[in-house]
């Protein structure tokens, strides 16, 4: 009560104490950009195009979309945001995955990183993903996508900072998260900046990557640690480096949690 009065005296009003006239907002650790594509965005000269419709963000260099061989041409930049309050304004005014048409994707990436393997931040990385049969998960996918986004923007996929990290915090492993709708299934993915390549010296990285996967499977998706998920149209929670994905399975080393 005493603290409340003090805060009031200082004039700090969050959205919880005054939903219309709040004067402080909760910054996100990183700014984020939402991107979208679907058959409806392909080959259409839509008014909003990714690189030209928005002023560039000062201090952030977005690698040329040209490097992606046309991959980015049909992907539309929806919005960028950097606070918890703005995230929810977006969430409450956009179409959830269960209502998207087939072959649509939302890509939520840290600002300045485009949702493509070719981006500097992604090219040495990989992804955790799970594929879920559509008919059994129509009622789950919206919650799973929301929880995936919340873990991303809340930055809870990365380990807590220790005192030794304060001066020089380790770079986050997460670059973005994706939900995809397909005729028979949904896919949720978490993209990482790095991927272990099997060497002994990379044990620490592998441990961190596996930590991301376990958090995804357990806390975010709500499965138990030992639960087996694969079946018709379904996969386990699996990690694959982008380099191995490009090889289309030949010699690919999957990690499963």
């Amino acid at each position: 009560q005493v603290v409340d009065m003090q805060a009031q005296a200082e004039g700090i009003k969050t959205v919880f104490s005054d939903p219309t006239n709040f004067n402080v907002k909760h910054p996100l650790y990183s700014p984020w950009t939402l991107w979208f594509d679907s058959p409806a965005t392909k080959g259409r000269n839509l008014p909003q195009t990714p690189m030209s419709a928005f002023p560039p963000t000062p201090g952030v260099t977005t690698p040329g979309a040209a490097a992606t061989g046309g991959w980015m041409d049909d992907i539309k930049r929806v919005i960028s945001f950097d606070s918890v309050e703005e995230f929810w304004g977006l969430y409450n005014n956009i179409v959830p995955p269960s209502q998207l048409p087939q072959k649509a994707n939302y890509y939520l990436f840290k600002e300045g990183i485009i949702p493509a393997w070719e981006d500097e931040a992604n090219k040495n990385g990989g992804k955790w993903s799970i594929q879920l049969p559509k008919d059994k998960n129509r009622g789950n996918v919206d919650r799973m996508w929301l929880y995936t986004m919340l873990a991303a923007i809340g930055e809870t996929f990365d380990p807590h900072l220790t005192q030794g990290d304060v001066a020089n915090p380790p770079q986050s492993l997460i670059t973005g998260v994706i939900v995809s709708t397909r005729p028979q299934f949904y896919r949720l993915s978490i993209w990482t900046r790095l991927a272990p390549n099997g060497g002994d010296e990379e044990a620490a990285l592998r441990t961190r990557i596996e930590g991301v996967g376990r958090h995804f499977k357990g806390t975010v998706l709500g499965y138990t640690e030992a639960q087996k998920l694969s079946g018709p149209l379904a996969t386990e929670v699996e990690f694959l480096s982008h380099k191995d994905s490009e090889k289309k399975g030949k010699g690919a080393k999957k990690i499963v949690v």
Partner: peptide
């Protein structure tokens, strides 16, 4: 700053 959703192809199925 949210554009009209139908203008960028986001339409409920």
């Amino acid at each position: 700053s949210l554009p009209a959703l139908d203008a960028i192809g986001i339409e409920p199925s």
